[in-house]
């Protein structure tokens, strides 16, 4: 067992069906560590969706290679069914893909097709619904269409969790949710990570929303991997990010504006809390210094 879950080497992709041939991915290489939560970030058309569609075999790596858990997904012998069980993908607006008349049936649909026994199936659905905070006994027999947008999205997530994937790919998971729905969704996502040790890959163009939970960021621009690193190191480059049509989180924009005005905030300031303490300290020091200056003069 090695500690790299997904290994991408020199991956390129050109959409041949487009009227004008466009290179959607251009020589991308990356290694995503097992059990981590990473985010792929980029403006519309930067290639982020194209990249992750290689991870569960929706696209074949040509040219280049993609290995998931050691298995070459471009190999002739690859079992796509097993791969897609291992790598679950939540598409944008997944609640629009709910179709069954009860929440139980909807969540059970995927695992059912894996040929599980009735008890195993029920246990899986129960567990998945527990994780997303919609307990089976309360919600199982209700229609998904009675729920709020955020809850429906969690039903869609449960449908994927019930297949016990080792990798979870989420494409713009919080678009269209309000503050509460978003915070809830991320809280449940954190639980999934903690309880199941799933390697999580977020696709997003919103840095603020991934900053809270991602361990590492990969920035794509015009199909090229242009930056990678911890959120702190990536956000410190807010000028550079603007050039790629990306905005650093609002806090980091404020920090950049403060630095421009001569306040020497260290790079590891990552939260409102950090910034508050730093500014309070500097003010106290200033106040201490002021009387000293006057007494000396």
């Amino acid at each position: 067992m090695n500690d790299v879950m997904i290994e991408v080497a020199h991956l390129s992709h050109t959409y041949t069906t487009a009227p004008v041939k466009k290179k959607a991915l251009d020589d991308v290489s990356m290694q995503i560590p097992r059990g981590e939560c990473v985010a792929v970030i980029g403006f519309n058309g930067s290639g982020k969706s194209t990249l992750v569609q290689h991870f569960n075999g929706l696209l074949r790596p040509t040219p280049g290679s993609v290995r998931v858990d050691g298995v070459d997904v471009g190999g002739a012998q690859v079992n796509l069914r097993a791969l897609r069980q291992k790598v679950g993908m939540l598409f944008q607006f997944p609640e629009s893909q709910l179709f069954a008349s009860t929440i139980y049936q909807d969540v059970a649909f995927g695992p059912q097709r894996m040929g599980l026994g009735r008890h195993e199936l029920r246990a899986r659905v129960k567990h998945a619904l527990d994780i997303v905070g919609l307990p089976l006994q309360d919600y199982g027999q209700r229609s998904p269409f009675e729920l709020s947008g955020g809850q429906r999205r969690r039903v869609a997530l449960a449908g994927i969790l019930a297949m016990t994937p080792r990798v979870l790919i989420l494409d713009e998971p919080s678009v269209g949710l309000d503050g509460e729905g978003r915070a809830e969704f991320y809280a449940y996502l954190q639980r999934v990570r903690q309880e199941q040790g799933v390697t999580t890959i977020l696709v997003s163009h919103d840095m603020a929303e991934v900053a809270a939970i991602a361990d590492g960021l990969y920035v794509l621009h015009h199909g090229k991997l242009v930056m990678q690193g911890t959120p702190a190191s990536v956000f410190a480059q807010s000028e550079q990010l603007r050039r790629w049509d990306l905005a650093a989180p609002p806090l980091h924009e404020l920090l950049a504006a403060l630095r421009q005005r001569g306040i020497a905030l260290p790079e590891d300031v990552m939260s409102v809390e950090d910034a508050f303490h730093f500014l309070q300290q500097t003010q106290k020091q200033k106040q201490k210094q002021l009387p000293d200056v006057s007494s000396r003069s």
């Binding site: 309000d178 503050g179 509460e180 978003r182 915070a183 989180p249 609002p250 806090l251 924009e253 404020l254 939260s271 409102v272 910034a275 508050f276 500014l279 309070q280 003010q283």
Partner: peptide, 20 residues
């Protein structure tokens, strides 16, 4: 009222409460 508070406003409010 279940609104997301932008970090810039949170920081301003905390500093104000601390006497800034």
């Amino acid at each position: 009222l279940k609104l997301i508070i932008p970090d810039s406003l949170s920081l301003a409010a905390r500093l104000r409460a601390a006497g800034f």
